[in-house]
Amino acid sequence: MEGIAIRVTDVHKRYRLGVFGGTTLAEDIKAWWAKVNGRPDPRVPIGKEHVAQRSGEFFLALRGLSFDVHQGEIVGVIGRNGAGKSTLLKLMSRITSPTSGTIRIKGRTSSLLEVGTGFNPELTGRENIFLNGAILGMRKHEIEAKLEEIIAFSGIEHHIDSPVKRYSSGMRVRLGFAVAAHLEPEVLIIDEVLAVGDAEFQRKCLGKMKDVASSGRTILFVSHNMTSVRSLCNRVIWLQDGKVAMDGPSEEVVTAYLRTYASLNDTVEWTAEAAPERARAFAECFSGT
């Protein structure tokens, strides 16, 4: 693990499709009793016994994902909805565990899947800074040392001693990001948090993240905003169907990604030979050849 901050090895995550977990105790005991006696699970519909065993009722959100991230790298993760980005983040944040495979992360890790997690509406902004910081893994004295800086960054000095329930949604987000931005983890995992606040605050956030990155920390950044991915990351991993579709320098991957999913409204030009298969088929369809 020399110089490697994150190592993801052959990670699979399987979810069950359909209704589950909503069972009652009685049903589960019946199912367990049937299993003990070697009879088929009574919950499985007739004629579907084989399907359930062949994992046809499951959905693989991640199928054999592997990659390494070096210390100090800022890696963007892109991909369409359902490609497995959020699942990957949830596994790395230890919110849920993988079905198989391992993830190793070196150093203190913080993940921001949402800003302002754990705010208590009855407590004041100041009290919530401490609570939120502690939830994210900060010690009390660390928060105290940065309290003034956090309040100044949030830009809501006048409201800091009012209960958070009286805040506007924008104020909550500002406060949440201000706390998060002052964490000092070695590895930072961020999901789409920049899609909040006004333009000026977004610029401020991006600037802060660049600061954090330049101090040698590792950042894993998931976003749909290609502009911020381009400007922030030096390497991008493109996920597709739970696997790595492409991994390389930001410009290359983002360009390839945009080319693949460019919508009809965008103008994309290729030479006849270089055009991807889909575009060629599309063109043929209209030219009638």
Binding site: M1, R94, S97, T99, I103, R104, I105, G107, E186
Partner: peptide
């Protein structure tokens, strides 16, 4: 928590725990 011991810490995420 000193920084030295924090950076030595490694988080292992796997399918099965004890």
């Amino acid at each position: 928590m000193s920084n030295a011991s924090a950076s030595e810490r490694e988080t292992f995420i796997g399918p099965d725990g004890p």
